[in-house]
């Protein structure tokens, strides 16, 4: 479904040597996959995700989505693409303060071309188990609950792919586990999911793990069915 071909991303801060955050990355993800991208801090995971999500453009290379090159889309076409195709869970969450969980979740619908949007927000919140917290503001929610609001926002517009950057980074082990089970459940329902983590235990929940080092994919393997069954059984 999505395919990166020879993607390079160079940051060139003025006056300092350029940083090759991604070097010649090629990666293909099919519908229904659950991929974990792992790597140490600074290895280029977030950069990779922002290119997947069309939040930034690669310096070179091609990004094909259902066979179409999306790097050549206009600025407004990219906005439309992000709205319809992608659900992004940001590393820093970025929930609107003083705004109810429901309104946060409904934010992508505000910019959607859909007309029938009633009930989608509460449906997404129900999917992450927050039916009883819809009117709470982020400040009134726990870290794990905030994370789930962010996930519900990524799901609300029924995207083709959910991208989550460090969704368990700031959570205690219990909440982290809950969030990972949620992703597994969503994947089981058919969502295509890519998460970033530097925690191998979390990566173990995914069906496929891609390791990135210094902006290059150095390993890419599909987990054994046994392991997958074991994690399902937990």
């Amino acid at each position: 479904m999505i395919e990166l071909q020879g993607i390079t991303r160079v940051y060139a801060p003025s006056g300092r040597p350029p940083v090759h955050a991604l070097s010649d990355v090629s990666l293909r993800i099919e519908r229904g996959e659950f991929v974990a991208v792992v790597g140490t801090s600074g290895s280029g995971k977030s950069t990779l995700m922002s290119i997947f999500g069309l939040l930034a453009r690669p310096t070179s290379g091609r990004y094909l989505f259902d066979g179409h090159d999306v790097t050549t889309l206009s600025v407004e076409e990219q906005a439309r693409f992000r709205n319809k195709r992608v659900g992004f869970v940001f590393q820093g969450l970025h929930l609107l303060p003083r705004t109810s969980a429901l309104e946060n979740v409904e934010l992508p619908l505000l910019y959607s071309e859909r007309t029938a949007i009633d009930g989608l927000g509460s449906k997404a919140l129900a999917a992450v188990g927050l039916t009883d917290r819809m009117q709470h503001t982020p400040a009134e929610l726990s870290g794990g609950q905030q994370q789930r609001v962010a996930i519900a926002r990524a799901l609300v517009n029924e995207p083709d792919i959910v991208l989550a950057d460090e969704p368990t980074g700031n959570l205690d082990p219990r909440s982290a586990l809950e969030v990972m089970s949620l992703f597994r459940e969503l994947n089981r329902q058919g969502h295509t999911i890519v998460i970033v983590t530097h925690d191998m235990a979390m990566a173990g929940h995914a069906k496929r793990v891609a390791r990135i080092e210094n902006g290059r994919i150095v390993a890419d393997r599909t987990t054994t069915p046994a392991r997958e069954r074991a994690s399902e059984a937990r």
Binding site: E76, A79, R82, K84, F90, P108, Y111, S112, N157
Partner: peptide
């Protein structure tokens, strides 16, 4: 940051 968020979830510049 809020503007970036809105753009990231699909707001056009004119929105």
């Amino acid at each position: 940051g809020e503007i970036g968020l809105r753009r990231a979830v699909g707001a056009r510049v004119e929105d």
